[in-house]
Simulated assay, not measured.
Amino acid sequence: MSSIDIVILTYNSARLLPEAVASVRAQTVADQVQITVIDNASTDNTLTVARELGIEPIANPTNVGFAAAVNQAVATGSAPYVAILNPDAALGDTKCLEAMRATLDDEQVGVVGTRMITDGKPYPNGRRFPSTTTAARHAIMGLLRPGNAGTREYFGDAAEHADADQVVDWVSGCCLMMRRPLWEEMGGFDERYWMYLEDCHLCWRLRQRGYRTVLSGPAWVIHHGGQSSRTRKTKSLWHHHRSAVIFYADTRTGWKRVLLPAATAFLAARLGVLVAINTARRITSRA
């Protein structure tokens, strides 16, 4: 019986899936890992590629979203540990899964994530839960100046501590691991989050129950980043902003809930600006 069930959710991921699978099979615990590929109605040859890799994928006839598909796949396994890996990510060290599992020996750790390398540089995983003011500053200034103070505060400083495990607010669902009993107790990802922030919300709920979220020191992945969303940019923007509204409603209490209509209107306006920019760029590129 495997000790780690690792789920890879695919959507038009034929080109990158082999690298992700190979990185799992190169792990020192490879003989204890069961890989489950679940596909959200790809239109390329992802299913064929998975079968060529010796994996019979779960083929959803429609795209049910990230959270629902991951929950669906995890439910088919029985290993004591559950891990998630994006198809556009590759485990960067043969002891990555082993290090993550070791971190979970501490019963107070609810979930462990990995360091991330994108385009050859550290990418900010292990972010802070966005306060109302930080989220607003990041949302506004991020349109004008990516390196602004609000964005830096939201990203945190986890990338500066690359040698040891570090307690953080939340980690990306690009690559994370939990003990199965706790995953099942939490109900997995909240399926209201079709895509984006389901990982943040899970870490938030774990925090409310007294568990810590940890960014692993030894474990890291190479993440090619946003491969499926690039082909559906407008839809991805819509789901990102929709998830932000849900997260705000889920996590704000007291007088801050009064700001929900204003936050929703602001995010709708921001979405409109980004869609307009994206449309203009697409038109320009075709000219």
Rank of each mutant, 00 (worst) to 15 (best):
R212Q: 12
H239G: 05
S13T: 03
P80F: 07
H240T: 13
H201Q: 11
A69N: 06
F66G: 01
C203P: 03
K95C: 11
V7L: 13
R145N: 12
D169R: 00
P57S: 10
Q108R: 15
Y154F: 15
R281C: 06
A20C: 02
F247K: 00
A159I: 14
S285P: 08
G142C: 04
P57Y: 08
S285H: 14
N86V: 00
T10C: 15
V109M: 01
Y81K: 09
D44E: 08
L91V: 03
G150W: 09
N278D: 15
A139W: 12
C174P: 01
S42T: 04
Y193E: 06
V21R: 05
F129L: 10
N45F: 00
G142M: 02
Y211H: 07
A22W: 09
M177Q: 07
G110I: 04
C175K: 02
R209E: 07
R179C: 00
Y123W: 15
M186V: 07
E184V: 08
M186H: 09
V258L: 15
C200A: 14
R128F: 04
V112K: 13
R127D: 03
Q72N: 11
L143S: 07
A139T: 13
N12S: 09
L237Y: 15
T43M: 01
E191V: 11
R152N: 11
E19Q: 14
T231A: 14
A22T: 08
A90W: 04
A14Q: 05
Q166E: 14
F66Y: 14
L274W: 08
M141W: 11
H241A: 09
T118L: 13
Q227I: 04
G210M: 09
A249D: 14
V167L: 00
N63G: 02
K235M: 12
G54L: 01
A99P: 05
V167W: 04
A68N: 08
D106Y: 03
P122M: 05
S228C: 10
F266W: 08
T134P: 00
T132C: 00
E160M: 12
G147T: 11
Y123T: 10
I8D: 12
M178G: 05
T231V: 06
I8P: 11
A26T: 10
I222R: 15
